[in-house]
Lab assay of single mutants.
Amino acid sequence: IEKFKLLAEKVEEIVAKNARAEIDYSDAPDEFRDPLMDTLMTDPVRLPSGTVMDRSIILRHLLNSPTDPFNRQMLTESMLEPVPELKEQIQAWMREKQSSDH
């Protein structure tokens, strides 16, 4: 029984630690959010139409349809242009958020 109590305490400790580690990014500025999924972008790319999306989301879309989801023009992965300035701004915002939450 004592071992179970210790195990339960350890589990509670881990759960509390994980809860502290989770950071809420739901208040991200609109320009940091993917327009299709409304999630925080981690690897922004510009489509030929000028729309900026997260790379993982547009690549997932391209698996089903080789088109720009906003104007239905033909689109391939090679046409995606990285946006390193925005990526750095997002990373800086995330770092600031992490340091203010801890």
Rank of each mutant, 00 (worst) to 15 (best):
I1K: 10
I1V: 06
E2Q: 06
K3E: 06
K3N: 13
K3R: 06
F4Y: 09
F4S: 10
K5R: 07
K5I: 06
K5E: 10
K5Q: 07
L6V: 09
L7P: 07
L7I: 08
L7H: 10
L7R: 09
L7V: 07
A8S: 14
A8G: 11
A8E: 13
E9V: 06
E9G: 08
E9D: 12
E9K: 08
K10T: 11
K10R: 12
K10Q: 12
V11M: 12
V11E: 12
E12V: 06
E12D: 14
E12Q: 07
E13K: 07
E13Q: 07
E13D: 10
E13G: 11
E13V: 05
E13A: 13
I14N: 10
I14T: 09
I14V: 10
V15G: 09
V15M: 08
V15L: 11
V15A: 13
A16E: 11
A16V: 09
A16G: 10
A16S: 12
K17R: 10
K17N: 12
K17M: 15
K17E: 13
K17Q: 11
N18Y: 08
N18K: 07
N18T: 08
A19V: 12
A19S: 07
R20Q: 15
R20W: 14
A21S: 11
E22V: 11
E22A: 05
E22K: 04
I23V: 09
I23T: 12
I23K: 14
I23M: 13
D24N: 05
D24Y: 12
D24A: 07
D24V: 05
D24G: 11
Y25D: 15
Y25N: 15
Y25H: 09
S26T: 13
S26R: 07
S26I: 15
S26C: 14
D27G: 14
D27Y: 08
D27V: 05
D27A: 05
A28D: 07
A28V: 12
P29T: 03
P29A: 04
P29S: 04
P29R: 05
D30Y: 06
D30N: 06
D30G: 09
D30H: 08
D30V: 07
D30E: 09
D30A: 07
E31Q: 06
E31G: 10
F32S: 00
F32I: 03
F32L: 05
F32C: 02
R33T: 04
R33G: 02
R33K: 12
D34E: 02
D34H: 00
D34G: 01
D34Y: 05
P35H: 02
L36V: 14
L36M: 02
L36Q: 02
M37T: 06
M37L: 15
M37R: 02
D38E: 03
D38G: 03
D38Y: 15
D38H: 04
D38N: 04
D38V: 15
T39S: 06
T39N: 05
L40P: 04
L40V: 14
M41I: 07
T42S: 11
D43A: 04
D43Y: 04
D43G: 01
P44T: 00
P44L: 00
V45L: 02
V45A: 03
V45M: 03
R46I: 08
R46K: 15
L47P: 02
L47Q: 00
P48T: 03
P48R: 03
P48H: 02
P48L: 01
S49T: 09
S49Y: 15
G50C: 03
G50A: 03
G50S: 05
G50R: 07
G50V: 01
T51I: 14
V52D: 01
V52L: 04
V52G: 01
M53K: 01
D54E: 12
D54G: 03
D54A: 00
R55C: 02
R55S: 04
R55P: 00
S56Y: 04
S56A: 09
I57L: 04
I57S: 14
I57N: 07
I58M: 03
L59V: 08
L59Q: 09
L59R: 08
L59P: 01
R60Q: 04
R60W: 02
H61Q: 02
H61N: 02
H61D: 01
L62R: 02
L62M: 14
L62Q: 02
L63I: 13
L63R: 10
L63F: 00
N64T: 04
N64I: 08
S65C: 03
S65F: 04
S65A: 04
S65T: 04
P66H: 08
P66R: 08
P66A: 13
T67P: 00
T67S: 06
D68A: 00
D68Y: 00
D68V: 00
D68H: 00
P69R: 00
P69S: 00
F70L: 01
F70V: 01
F70C: 00
F70I: 02
N71T: 15
N71Y: 01
N71H: 01
N71K: 01
N71S: 05
R72G: 02
R72C: 02
R72P: 01
Q73P: 00
Q73E: 05
Q73R: 05
M74L: 14
L75M: 04
L75V: 03
L75P: 01
T76A: 06
E77V: 05
E77G: 07
S78R: 10
S78N: 09
S78G: 13
S78T: 07
S78C: 13
S78I: 05
M79T: 04
M79I: 04
M79R: 05
M79K: 06
L80R: 00
L80Q: 01
L80P: 00
L80V: 06
E81A: 10
E81K: 13
E81G: 06
P82Q: 06
P82A: 12
P82L: 03
V83A: 07
V83M: 08
V83E: 11
P84L: 13
P84T: 10
E85K: 12
E85A: 07
E85Q: 11
L86P: 01
L86I: 08
L86R: 06
L86V: 05
K87R: 08
K87T: 09
E88Q: 09
E88V: 11
E88G: 15
Q89R: 13
Q89P: 03
Q89H: 07
I90T: 04
Q91P: 01
Q91K: 09
A92P: 02
A92T: 11
W93G: 02
W93L: 04
W93S: 02
W93C: 02
W93R: 03
M94T: 14
M94K: 12
M94L: 14
R95S: 12
R95G: 11
R95I: 10
R95T: 14
R95K: 02
K97Q: 14
K97I: 13
K97T: 13
Q98K: 14
Q98E: 14
Q98L: 10
Q98H: 12
S99N: 10
S99T: 14
S100N: 10
S100I: 14
S100C: 10
D101G: 09
D101H: 06
H102D: 15
H102Q: 08
H102L: 10
